[in-house]
Amino acid sequence: MAALPPYATLGERIWHYSYLAICGLIFLFLIFPILVIIPLSFNASPYFSFTPEMLTFDPAGYSLRWYHDFITNPNWQGAVRNSFIIAIFSTIISTFLGTLAALGLSRSNFPFRTTVMGILLSPMVVPFIISAAGMFFFYSRINLQGTYTGVILAHAALATPFVVITVTATLVGFDRSLTRSAASLGASPARVFFRITVPLITPGVISGALFAFVTSFDEVVVILFVGSYKQRTIPWQMFSGIREQISPTILAVATILILISILLLASVEILRRRNERLRGITST
Protein backbone atom coordinates (compact mmCIF):
# COMPACT_ATOMS: atom_id res chain seq x y z
CA MET A 1 0.00 0.00 0.00
CA ALA A 2 2.47 2.54 -1.21
CA ALA A 3 1.41 6.09 -1.89
CA LEU A 4 -1.25 6.60 -4.54
CA PRO A 5 -0.03 7.11 -8.09
CA PRO A 6 -0.65 10.59 -9.49
CA TYR A 7 -3.14 9.21 -12.01
CA ALA A 8 -5.43 7.72 -9.35
CA THR A 9 -9.08 8.48 -9.92
CA LEU A 10 -11.24 10.29 -7.39
CA GLY A 11 -12.91 7.02 -6.45
CA GLU A 12 -9.59 5.40 -5.83
CA ARG A 13 -8.50 8.32 -3.69
CA ILE A 14 -11.65 8.14 -1.57
CA TRP A 15 -11.27 4.39 -1.19
CA HIS A 16 -7.60 4.72 -0.32
CA TYR A 17 -8.17 7.27 2.44
CA SER A 18 -11.19 5.52 3.88
CA TYR A 19 -9.15 2.31 3.97
CA LEU A 20 -6.41 4.10 5.88
CA ALA A 21 -9.03 5.52 8.23
CA ILE A 22 -10.45 2.05 8.88
CA CYS A 23 -6.97 0.75 9.65
CA GLY A 24 -6.43 3.68 11.98
CA LEU A 25 -9.60 2.82 13.85
CA ILE A 26 -8.54 -0.82 14.21
CA PHE A 27 -5.13 0.23 15.54
CA LEU A 28 -6.95 2.54 17.92
CA PHE A 29 -9.10 -0.39 19.08
CA LEU A 30 -5.92 -2.36 19.76
CA ILE A 31 -4.04 0.29 21.66
CA PHE A 32 -6.64 2.62 23.19
CA PRO A 33 -7.78 0.29 26.01
CA ILE A 34 -4.16 -0.11 27.11
CA LEU A 35 -3.37 3.59 26.96
CA VAL A 36 -6.56 4.70 28.68
CA ILE A 37 -5.56 2.81 31.81
CA ILE A 38 -2.52 4.97 32.39
CA PRO A 39 -4.22 8.34 33.11
CA LEU A 40 -7.03 6.58 34.95
CA SER A 41 -4.55 5.12 37.41
CA PHE A 42 -3.76 8.65 38.62
CA ASN A 43 -7.41 9.28 39.45
CA ALA A 44 -7.87 10.97 42.82
CA SER A 45 -11.31 9.42 43.35
CA PRO A 46 -12.08 5.73 43.51
CA TYR A 47 -13.67 5.52 40.07
CA PHE A 48 -12.78 3.71 36.87
CA SER A 49 -13.67 6.71 34.75
CA PHE A 50 -12.51 10.26 34.15
CA THR A 51 -13.80 12.71 36.74
CA PRO A 52 -14.65 16.33 35.71
CA GLU A 53 -11.54 17.50 37.59
CA MET A 54 -9.36 15.18 35.51
CA LEU A 55 -10.88 16.42 32.27
CA THR A 56 -10.13 20.05 33.15
CA PHE A 57 -6.59 19.03 34.12
CA ASP A 58 -7.17 20.24 37.65
CA PRO A 59 -4.23 18.94 39.71
CA ALA A 60 -6.67 18.07 42.49
CA GLY A 61 -8.17 15.45 40.21
CA TYR A 62 -4.91 13.54 40.04
CA SER A 63 -3.06 11.72 42.76
CA LEU A 64 -0.65 8.92 43.42
CA ARG A 65 -2.82 7.37 46.13
CA TRP A 66 -3.37 4.09 44.24
CA TYR A 67 0.35 3.70 43.71
CA HIS A 68 0.82 4.41 47.39
CA ASP A 69 -1.77 1.77 48.19
CA PHE A 70 0.01 -0.70 45.92
CA ILE A 71 3.33 -0.11 47.65
CA THR A 72 2.06 -0.21 51.21
CA ASN A 73 -0.72 -2.81 51.06
CA PRO A 74 0.56 -6.15 52.42
CA ASN A 75 -1.71 -8.07 50.02
CA TRP A 76 0.07 -6.53 47.05
CA GLN A 77 3.52 -6.69 48.66
CA GLY A 78 3.10 -10.42 49.17
CA ALA A 79 1.81 -10.77 45.63
CA VAL A 80 4.84 -9.03 44.14
CA ARG A 81 7.22 -11.15 46.21
CA ASN A 82 5.42 -14.39 45.28
CA SER A 83 5.25 -13.47 41.61
CA PHE A 84 9.00 -13.07 41.46
CA ILE A 85 9.80 -16.16 43.55
CA ILE A 86 7.52 -18.39 41.52
CA ALA A 87 8.50 -16.95 38.14
CA ILE A 88 12.24 -17.12 38.84
CA PHE A 89 12.23 -20.71 40.05
CA SER A 90 9.94 -21.98 37.31
CA THR A 91 12.02 -20.12 34.71
CA ILE A 92 15.21 -21.79 35.97
CA ILE A 93 13.64 -25.24 35.84
CA SER A 94 11.98 -24.82 32.48
CA THR A 95 14.94 -23.13 30.79
CA PHE A 96 17.34 -25.84 31.97
CA LEU A 97 15.14 -28.78 31.00
CA GLY A 98 13.84 -27.14 27.83
CA THR A 99 17.30 -26.24 26.49
CA LEU A 100 18.63 -29.75 27.10
CA ALA A 101 15.64 -31.25 25.33
CA ALA A 102 15.91 -28.87 22.40
CA LEU A 103 19.58 -29.82 21.97
CA GLY A 104 18.60 -33.50 21.91
CA LEU A 105 15.64 -33.01 19.61
CA SER A 106 17.65 -31.09 17.04
CA ARG A 107 19.94 -34.04 16.34
CA SER A 108 19.03 -35.44 12.97
CA ASN A 109 18.58 -39.07 13.98
CA PHE A 110 16.23 -38.57 16.91
CA PRO A 111 13.69 -41.40 16.97
CA PHE A 112 9.93 -40.61 16.97
CA ARG A 113 10.74 -36.94 16.82
CA THR A 114 7.22 -35.77 15.95
CA THR A 115 5.57 -37.79 18.70
CA VAL A 116 8.04 -36.73 21.38
CA MET A 117 7.79 -33.12 20.24
CA GLY A 118 3.99 -33.36 20.42
CA ILE A 119 4.16 -34.62 24.01
CA LEU A 120 6.68 -31.98 25.06
CA LEU A 121 4.59 -29.20 23.55
CA SER A 122 1.30 -30.52 24.93
CA PRO A 123 1.16 -28.12 27.93
CA MET A 124 0.91 -25.27 25.43
CA VAL A 125 -1.85 -26.98 23.45
CA VAL A 126 -4.19 -27.94 26.25
CA PRO A 127 -6.45 -25.09 27.43
CA PHE A 128 -5.29 -23.68 30.75
CA ILE A 129 -8.57 -24.48 32.45
CA ILE A 130 -8.08 -28.19 31.71
CA SER A 131 -4.46 -28.18 32.86
CA ALA A 132 -5.64 -26.35 35.95
CA ALA A 133 -8.38 -28.89 36.66
CA GLY A 134 -6.05 -31.87 36.15
CA MET A 135 -3.29 -30.36 38.26
CA PHE A 136 -5.76 -29.46 40.99
CA PHE A 137 -6.98 -33.07 41.19
CA PHE A 138 -3.53 -34.63 40.97
CA TYR A 139 -1.62 -32.18 43.16
CA SER A 140 -4.21 -32.44 45.92
CA ARG A 141 -3.73 -36.20 45.88
CA ILE A 142 0.02 -35.84 46.49
CA ASN A 143 -0.33 -32.86 48.87
CA LEU A 144 1.20 -30.32 46.52
CA GLN A 145 -1.96 -28.25 46.17
CA GLY A 146 -1.54 -24.92 47.92
CA THR A 147 2.26 -25.19 48.14
CA TYR A 148 5.02 -23.18 46.48
CA THR A 149 6.52 -26.40 45.11
CA GLY A 150 3.24 -27.29 43.43
CA VAL A 151 2.82 -23.88 41.83
CA ILE A 152 6.45 -23.72 40.67
CA LEU A 153 6.28 -27.19 39.13
CA ALA A 154 2.98 -26.36 37.44
CA HIS A 155 4.31 -23.12 35.99
CA ALA A 156 7.54 -24.78 34.88
CA ALA A 157 5.52 -27.42 33.02
CA LEU A 158 3.44 -24.74 31.29
CA ALA A 159 6.53 -22.72 30.33
CA THR A 160 8.83 -25.44 28.93
CA PRO A 161 7.15 -25.58 25.48
CA PHE A 162 8.10 -21.95 24.89
CA VAL A 163 11.73 -22.66 25.76
CA VAL A 164 11.77 -25.76 23.55
CA ILE A 165 10.31 -23.79 20.63
CA THR A 166 12.63 -20.80 20.84
CA VAL A 167 15.80 -22.83 21.39
CA THR A 168 14.84 -25.27 18.60
CA ALA A 169 14.26 -22.30 16.30
CA THR A 170 17.79 -21.07 17.06
CA LEU A 171 19.20 -24.52 16.37
CA VAL A 172 17.43 -24.81 13.00
CA GLY A 173 19.74 -22.22 11.52
CA PHE A 174 22.71 -23.65 13.39
CA ASP A 175 25.70 -24.31 11.17
CA ARG A 176 26.93 -27.82 12.08
CA SER A 177 30.21 -27.33 10.27
CA LEU A 178 31.22 -24.91 13.04
CA THR A 179 31.16 -27.62 15.70
CA ARG A 180 32.73 -30.12 13.30
CA SER A 181 35.60 -27.83 12.46
CA ALA A 182 36.15 -27.12 16.16
CA ALA A 183 36.27 -30.86 16.83
CA SER A 184 38.60 -31.47 13.92
CA LEU A 185 40.90 -28.81 15.31
CA GLY A 186 41.20 -30.90 18.44
CA ALA A 187 38.59 -29.46 20.83
CA SER A 188 36.99 -31.94 23.21
CA PRO A 189 33.18 -32.34 22.98
CA ALA A 190 32.76 -30.31 26.18
CA ARG A 191 34.97 -27.55 24.85
CA VAL A 192 33.05 -27.52 21.56
CA PHE A 193 29.82 -27.25 23.47
CA PHE A 194 30.90 -24.39 25.73
CA ARG A 195 32.98 -22.44 23.23
CA ILE A 196 30.92 -22.89 20.05
CA THR A 197 27.38 -24.11 20.75
CA VAL A 198 26.59 -22.14 23.90
CA PRO A 199 27.50 -18.67 22.59
CA LEU A 200 25.49 -19.29 19.44
CA ILE A 201 22.32 -20.52 21.14
CA THR A 202 22.45 -18.05 24.03
CA PRO A 203 20.07 -15.53 22.41
CA GLY A 204 17.54 -18.33 21.86
CA VAL A 205 17.94 -19.54 25.44
CA ILE A 206 17.52 -16.04 26.83
CA SER A 207 14.42 -15.30 24.80
CA GLY A 208 13.08 -18.74 25.78
CA ALA A 209 13.74 -17.85 29.42
CA LEU A 210 11.96 -14.53 28.90
CA PHE A 211 8.94 -16.32 27.47
CA ALA A 212 9.02 -18.73 30.40
CA PHE A 213 9.23 -15.86 32.87
CA VAL A 214 6.33 -14.03 31.24
CA THR A 215 4.27 -17.21 31.12
CA SER A 216 4.64 -17.69 34.84
CA PHE A 217 4.41 -13.99 35.71
CA ASP A 218 1.22 -13.62 33.69
CA GLU A 219 -0.39 -16.94 34.43
CA VAL A 220 -3.59 -16.80 36.43
CA VAL A 221 -5.82 -19.82 35.71
CA VAL A 222 -3.57 -22.57 37.02
CA ILE A 223 -2.52 -20.63 40.09
CA LEU A 224 -6.15 -20.04 41.02
CA PHE A 225 -6.55 -23.80 41.25
CA VAL A 226 -3.13 -25.09 42.30
CA GLY A 227 -2.22 -22.18 44.59
CA SER A 228 -3.92 -20.61 47.54
CA TYR A 229 -3.88 -17.15 49.17
CA LYS A 230 -0.42 -17.88 50.49
CA GLN A 231 1.00 -18.27 46.99
CA ARG A 232 -0.98 -15.32 45.60
CA THR A 233 0.77 -13.69 42.65
CA ILE A 234 0.06 -10.30 41.06
CA PRO A 235 -2.44 -11.77 38.54
CA TRP A 236 -4.08 -13.78 41.35
CA GLN A 237 -4.47 -10.61 43.39
CA MET A 238 -5.77 -8.67 40.39
CA PHE A 239 -8.30 -11.38 39.61
CA SER A 240 -9.69 -11.49 43.12
CA GLY A 241 -9.50 -7.69 43.27
CA ILE A 242 -11.63 -7.30 40.15
CA ARG A 243 -14.09 -9.88 41.43
CA GLU A 244 -14.47 -8.57 44.97
CA GLN A 245 -13.56 -5.03 45.88
CA ILE A 246 -12.76 -3.21 42.70
CA SER A 247 -10.37 -0.34 43.33
CA PRO A 248 -8.18 1.75 41.00
CA THR A 249 -5.15 0.15 42.65
CA ILE A 250 -5.65 -2.49 39.97
CA LEU A 251 -5.20 0.22 37.33
CA ALA A 252 -2.00 1.40 39.04
CA VAL A 253 -0.70 -2.18 38.98
CA ALA A 254 -1.81 -2.48 35.37
CA THR A 255 0.14 0.65 34.44
CA ILE A 256 3.27 -0.76 36.04
CA LEU A 257 2.74 -4.05 34.20
CA ILE A 258 2.35 -2.18 30.89
CA LEU A 259 5.71 -0.52 31.46
CA ILE A 260 7.23 -3.91 32.22
CA SER A 261 5.81 -5.38 29.03
CA ILE A 262 7.21 -2.51 27.00
CA LEU A 263 10.62 -3.32 28.46
CA LEU A 264 10.15 -7.01 27.69
CA LEU A 265 9.04 -6.28 24.14
CA ALA A 266 12.11 -4.17 23.60
CA SER A 267 14.49 -6.79 25.01
CA VAL A 268 12.99 -9.63 22.94
CA GLU A 269 13.30 -7.47 19.83
CA ILE A 270 16.93 -6.66 20.61
CA LEU A 271 17.66 -10.35 21.18
CA ARG A 272 16.00 -11.28 17.89
CA ARG A 273 18.10 -8.78 15.99
CA ARG A 274 21.30 -9.91 17.72
CA ASN A 275 20.47 -13.54 16.93
CA GLU A 276 19.92 -12.74 13.25
CA ARG A 277 23.12 -10.74 13.11
CA LEU A 278 25.11 -13.58 14.70
CA ARG A 279 23.74 -16.10 12.24
CA GLY A 280 24.59 -13.80 9.39
CA ILE A 281 21.00 -13.16 8.38
CA THR A 282 20.70 -9.45 7.86
CA SER A 283 17.23 -8.12 8.28
CA THR A 284 16.27 -5.14 6.22
Binding site: L100, L103, L105, F110, L120, S122, G134, A157, T160
Partner: peptide, 22 residues
Protein backbone atom coordinates in the same frame (compact mmCIF):
# COMPACT_ATOMS: atom_id res chain seq x y z
CA UNK B 1 20.24 -37.28 22.30
CA UNK B 2 17.71 -39.48 24.13
CA UNK B 3 19.47 -38.73 27.40
CA UNK B 4 19.17 -35.01 26.71
CA UNK B 5 15.44 -35.21 26.12
CA UNK B 6 14.69 -37.71 28.90
CA UNK B 7 14.67 -35.25 31.86
CA UNK B 8 12.11 -32.95 30.28
CA UNK B 9 10.07 -35.92 29.10
CA UNK B 10 9.90 -37.31 32.63
CA UNK B 11 9.16 -33.86 34.02
CA UNK B 12 6.24 -33.28 31.66
CA UNK B 13 5.02 -36.79 32.33
CA UNK B 14 4.94 -36.25 36.10
CA UNK B 15 3.81 -32.66 36.35
CA UNK B 16 1.48 -32.48 33.39
CA UNK B 17 0.45 -35.72 31.71
CA UNK B 18 -0.32 -37.56 34.95
CA UNK B 19 -2.61 -34.73 36.10
CA UNK B 20 -4.43 -34.78 32.77
CA UNK B 21 -4.79 -38.56 33.02
CA UNK B 22 -6.05 -38.11 36.56
Amino acid sequence: SLLLVAPLFLFILLTFLLPITD
